[in-house]
């Protein structure tokens, strides 16, 4: 509005990726974090897909919000429009990959419908609008969030790979141990976040 927030893009990128990590700080996109992280390669692919979808949908949603909803004073419909945009983007991406990159499609394919209900994607779009980021800032924010999410899922997957051979308490199961890993990582990230937000 009067004075658009001036945040250095690099700060935005890193705070979105690390200190205000979308998965561990906002609790968004936890389900795939737990269910996909069994395999490092799949996790990385999932992370990349999420980042890509996040980037596309944030841009599209930014445009919808600023060019259609705000001038028409229909802000209360933002949820509807955002979600439909995400669903359509995911479907288009699925078709596109199927046609041009079948090898990628076979790896990603099953994850794509899951992404529609990945709250991280909707969350990032909503945050970008809420915080009045410009288009460039939104894109940087989306890229940072996507990277951050990808980072977390890869860390969890690598830790899980290491403890694969260890005897995990039977009753804890895969979900439980992943939760504990996530807890430890979240603690570590909150430390980093404290550091970055001027703990000195």
């Amino acid at each position: 509005m009067e004075n658009a927030i001036q945040i250095p893009l690099l700060t935005l990128l890193f705070s979105a990726a690390i200190s205000e990590n979308v998965a561990l700080y906002y609790f968004l996109g936890i389900c795939p974090l737990i269910s996909i992280s069994a395999d490092l390669k799949a996790s990385f692919n999932m992370g990349l897909t999420v980042s890509l979808v996040m980037l596309i949908t944030t841009a599209a949603n930014w445009a919808i919000y600023h060019l259609l909803l705000q001038p028409m004073e229909l802000e209360y419909l933002q949820l509807l429009f955002f979600v439909l945009i995400i669903a359509a983007t995911v479907q288009l991406l699925e078709l596109f990959l199927d046609r041009f990159f079948p090898s990628i499609y076979e790896v990603f394919g099953i994850f794509l419908p899951l992404i529609t209900v990945n709250c991280a994607i909707l969350g990032v779009s909503m945050f970008a609008v809420l915080r009045e980021y410009s288009l460039i800032q939104s894109l940087v924010f989306a890229a940072g969030s996507g990277m951050g999410w990808c980072l977390v899922i890869c860390i969890i997957a690598s830790v899980r790979r290491r403890i694969n051979i260890d005897a995990v308490p039977v009753h804890l199961g895969k979900t439980g141990i992943t939760m504990l890993i996530a807890a430890v990582i979240a603690l570590a990230f909150s430390g980093v976040s404290e550091l970055m937000s001027g703990g000195f």
Partner: peptide, 18 residues
């Protein structure tokens, strides 16, 4: 805090499975 949620969840999951 967020990590606390993960820990409680894991503990509860353990109890339920047991």
């Amino acid at each position: 805090s967020p990590p606390g949620a993960f820990i409680v969840f894991a503990a509860l999951l353990f109890a339920v499975n047991w």
